[in-house]
């Protein structure tokens, strides 16, 4: 008995050590980023660990906050996240509910019509031409419409609704409720958990998206935060003698502190929000995968 206790204790030790190790691989780099963002240049360029600030210099943050595009980027990201998530929820539900009805005429065909899009795309250039031709260039619509519905999410929602007990709807019908009433008072409330999941995923995707903004938005003030951040990080890293870029004398250069400050500014909202949302994500992941 005693021997077992020993081995169990050793086992516990290993478990705690491994988990602490994993947490450190996440926490330490974050601390380094934070430290560099508030450090003066001579500290930044010094060899060695940089986990805890030894001297303070907030010029990196000043430079970041001075940049107008950071603020407009924040605003644009917020707008696209809210608008895009709203559109995604509504559209996904509009598609999922009819397709969940087994008696829907040609249900297989319409489902197939949706599913097939998971496997084919015409490529970047036709998509670009489409967005341009329907007049979405340089608008927030070019960021929220092309990816509005994910076929995969739609299927998950469809399966969820299909698994709801039919009897509820039927008894309401017998009571004389009309279809719209049933939809609004019964189906929608019951689908809330899965719609919340869709919303959370869509919101994270929108917050982190940048490629579409790079392609479709040619107005710097309308670009999203991630892209602005990318620019700040990359500026000045390429050697003009190898890239053949034009005169570098006037090219912008950003200090490492400024880059890290921009990172912190971009990460902060997510870092503040996600711990409170994680339980919904956990629930959503399970709903999605079990039914999927």
């Amino acid at each position: 008995m005693k021997q077992r206790r020993m081995s169990d204790r050793l086992f516990s030790l290993v478990v705690y050590a491994l988990l602490t190790g994993l947490a450190l691989t996440i926490v330490l780099p974050m601390m380094q980023v934070l430290t560099i963002s508030v450090s003066p240049l001579n500290v930044v360029n010094r060899y060695g660990f940089h986990f805890i600030p030894t001297a303070f210099d907030f010029s990196g943050y000043r430079q970041v906050f001075h940049k107008e595009t950071i603020w407009t980027g924040y605003q644009n990201t917020l707008v696209r996240t809210i608008l895009g998530t709203g559109i995604t929820i509504v559209m996904t539900f509009l598609g999922a509910y009819p397709l969940s009805k087994r008696q829907l005429p040609n249900r297989a065909f319409w489902t197939g019509f949706v599913v097939l899009t998971m496997f084919f795309s015409g490529g970047l250039i036709p998509s670009y031409m489409l967005v341009k031709n329907i007049g979405l260039m340089n608008t927030v619509w070019s960021l929220v419409l092309p990816g509005a519905v994910s076929a995969f999410m739609l299927l998950i929602v469809r399966n969820f609704i299909a698994a709801l007990p039919e009897s509820l709807e039927e008894s309401a019908k017998i009571d004389g409720a009309n279809d719209l009433y049933i939809l609004w008072k019964i189906v929608v409330p019951l689908s809330m958990p899965i719609l919340a999941t869709v919303a959370l995923y869509a919101a994270v995707d929108h917050w982190n998206a940048w490629f579409d903004s790079m392609l479709y938005i040619q107005n710097e003030k309308k670009q999203v935060l991630q892209l602005i951040l990318r620019k700040i990080i990359i500026d000045g890293t390429a050697d003009p003698s190898t890239t053949g870029a034009a005169d570098s004398m006037n090219a912008p250069t950003n200090s490492q502190a400024m880059k890290m400050a921009a990172l912190v500014v971009t990460m902060l909202p997510i870092m503040c929000v996600y711990p409170f949302l994680q339980k919904y994500f956990v629930k959503g992941t399970l709903l999605g995968s079990v039914k999927g």
Binding site: I125, Y128, M129, M214, L215, Q218, L227
Partner: peptide, 27 residues
């Protein structure tokens, strides 16, 4: 005055070209 991201100049411009857009004067 056109604006394409200086860092992604070539990439952005080439997409525009493929879609049939071009400026009059360019680097």
């Amino acid at each position: 005055v056109w604006y394409v991201d200086n860092q992604k100049w070539v990439d952005q411009l080439n997409v525009k070209f493929a879609a049939g857009e071009m400026p009059d004067v360019l680097q």
